[in-house]
Design a protein around this nucleic acid. Sequence first.
DNA 1: TGCAAAGTTGCATGCACTGCAAGTTTGGGC
DNA 2: GCCCAAACTTGCAGTGCATGCAACTTTGCA
Lengths: 202, 202
Amino acid sequence: MTTVITLDEGLRARKKRETRHALHRAAIELLHEGDFCDVTIEAIAARAGVSPRTFFNYFPAKEAALSGTDPDMVARAREFMLARPATEDTVTAVRGATLERLRELVVDAELWQMRRAVSQRHPEFAAGLVGANALAEKAIAQAACERLGADPLTDVTPMATAYAALGAIRAALQQHVSAGFAGSIEERIDAALAAVGLWPRP
Amino acid sequence: MTTVITLDEGLRARKKRETRHALHRAAIELLHEGDFCDVTIEAIAARAGVSPRTFFNYFPAKEAALSGTDPDMVARAREFMLARPATEDTVTAVRGATLERLRELVVDAELWQMRRAVSQRHPEFAAGLVGANALAEKAIAQAACERLGADPLTDVTPMATAYAALGAIRAALQQHVSAGFAGSIEERIDAALAAVGLWPRP
DNA sequence: TGCAAAGTTGCATGCACTGCAAGTTTGGGC
DNA sequence: GCCCAAACTTGCAGTGCATGCAACTTTGCA
């Protein structure tokens, strides 16, 4: 997921955001057009219109540019989960936190399709994406325990419930991306949770 | 998960397996004792007793040595799932495939505790581990669809069920590792699946 | 014992990545 | 509109990662 467009930003902030997106897109395009050996820092930077040194002001590593994930994605995922109303049970809170995360998602359908294409051709690229998302899910699951004051070493239920809900939701998200973002993601999520008996809540 | 010890192997195969383990352990020890900048190819190779060039006969990259995961882990996970009896429903098959994978696990408790310690201190290290496992889970979930002849684009149920079961199981595995591998992993897995209403099967 | 297969290793090379510092652009106060 | 500080861009030199090539060593088997 990438950071949402803010409406009130200066030229500097806008240029920074646009440069980051251009670098990410350049990386994906180069991989889509060729192979990993074609995706060099020099080639990415040239296509994005900046110097190779500048590349490292935006991404800590080439792989990060390919993933395009926000450095604070894990922290934000955890925040969304901890911000859920205390009255919500774990599944409802996970569902709500996920929908909040999706609201920040910038849908560049063409870019997403390229990402899917290169994921299929290059498992190493997919590894970076699923790794980043897996860490975010882990943060959400740990936040699920915290908001209940549960100790996962003695009580596996909150962790298992959060992970199971996140798993079902991931199936819905993958289906949604495969369908070219057509239809309602909220309906897909509810269908997936229902399929495993976790929705609607009793 | 690392590859199991085979009883019938030659000197060459044994030395190869031992070298690979020594390199992985060296990488973990160096990170446990210091920081990422201390973990160089040269330092890993020196501690494992091989040359830096030899390091690359065993691992494609430094990060791979840190993760220590088998290059064919994803393929093996998928094979385990496809090998499950056709009479088993998705949850039962996922559970069985996971127990098969665990049978291959070499439990070096000291090494596992070091891995947990460095995971907590170094999120980037954890990212590599969860990424590799996430890919294996994805392969299992896709195999779950294949064995049912289901299309995930039109029917989210098999994918959602497999991912939900894998999520609950992951909670059990993390609890098991945190408990220093004490107790029955099978009982923990069943408790986690029961917590989300997926076990026992109807 | 000898030979082929497999493995080890040094070296040169290209690329990734970083710190430093000089130059440029942006934003805001006056 | 000007000025200045903050933020950003960039070149360069350097270190470490990773690879191909080829020479040498070890292992396994007939």
